[in-house]
């Protein structure tokens, strides 16, 4: 896993594919196009790129209007501003009328790093997931991002894609197949399952390797489609392992861990441990130092797995 790439870079490249293939795709940004990587699309397709300035509410509303007139807008900003500042525009002008807007946000989670807690969205998945009609996707690497962006363009209706700033390990190649509503079992195991998304998938694979050395067989599931959630796969894996750890770079309230707990709680009560931000904001620092500090390292996952096993 030596190679690394940022999901936002993959997003920028996927937009170029869409720009070429689909004349209805338009892109909006809020003065962050170099960071969100929409700038390249802007250079190649200037007539279909709209910089809306630092005005996210207006950006999402404009995207709604473009969608109402038949366009497929990709609306980009940092996750905190896209889903936070413009929440009610997303709610009432996009999700409620089920308009075909793709909210493609970057710089989610504490791995934003040095900019600090004000810029680290830790609640975006929770608030997007609570909206009817909204699809919520969290890619684990660049290839998955590429496929996700293309899938989002094909999907009719609003989609939220949560990407990061940081370069993350390359996990997949073109043989990988992302599908909205499907979770992927990356590693079959029998003792415990780690269900993760985003950059925590790579951490989960590392933790699984460490645990294998101790004779613990760990299943790793990439739940990149938080909504719709692949209940079938989650229930099957939970039934096989009878202990589940969830891992996400998000508050433990309302995100992936909550979504999985909702399913298991109702359909297959299973010993569970949720790894995520423990209802706290982030802070400034180097990304990997922050991930360790806030309990999102591989050692933290190993510890969580032991806790889950002890509950069996």
């Amino acid at each position: 896993m030596a190679n690394k790439a940022a999901t936002r870079d993959a997003y920028g490249k996927a937009l170029l594919i869409l720009g070429k293939e689909n004349p209805n795709v338009v892109v909006l940004d809020a003065d962050l196009s170099k960071s969100t990587k929409t700038a390249e699309f802007g250079k190649n397709y200037p007539e279909r790129f709209f910089n809306m300035g630092i005005a996210e509410g207006n950006l999402l509303g404009t995207a709604a209007g473009l969608a109402a007139a038949g366009k497929i807008p990709f609306a980009s900003s940092f996750a905190i501003f896209a889903t936070g500042r413009a929440f009610e525009q997303i709610r009432n002008s996009i999700a409620y009328p089920k308009l075909n807007v793709k909210i493609a946000a970057t710089h989610a989670g504490i791995s934003v790093g040095e900019d600090g807690g004000s810029h680290q969205a830790i609640e975006d998945v929770a608030i997007m997931r609570a909206l009817p009609n909204m699809v919520v996707l969290v890619p684990a690497d660049g290839e998955e991002t590429r496929q996700m962006v293309l899938a989002a363009a094909e999907h009719q209706g609003p989609v939220y894609i949560r990407m990061g700033r940081l370069e993350v390990p390359v996990l997949f190649d073109e043989d990988y197949h992302f599908e909205i509503g499907k979770a992927k079992v990356l590693k079959e195991g029998t003792d415990v399952a780690i269900m993760a998304n985003g950059l925590m998938v790579a951490v989960a694979l590392e933790a699984a390797e460490l645990l294998a050395g101790e004779g613990i067989s760990v299943s790793v599931v990439n739940v990149s489609s938080v909504k719709p959630l692949d209940e079938e796969t989650i229930l099957r894996v939970a039934k096989e392992t009878r202990a589940v750890v969830t891992a996400e770079e998000h508050n433990i309230i309302g995100g992936l861990g909550s979504a999985i707990a909702e399913v298991l709680g109702e359909k297959l009560p299973t010993p569970m441990v949720r790894v995520g931000l423990k209802d706290t904001f982030g802070e400034s620092g180097r990304p990997y130092e922050l991930l360790e500090k806030f309990g999102l390292g591989k050692e933290d996952l190993v510890k969580a797995v032991r806790e889950a096993l002890a509950k069996k």
Partner: peptide, 21 residues
């Protein structure tokens, strides 16, 4: 042509429609 009711949002939406046109 557009769902509305939460005030302040309609002009942005109209802009989007006009841009598409």
């Amino acid at each position: 042509d557009m769902s509305s009711g939460s005030l302040g949002q309609g002009l942005s939406v109209a802009n989007g429609m006009a841009l598409a046109g």
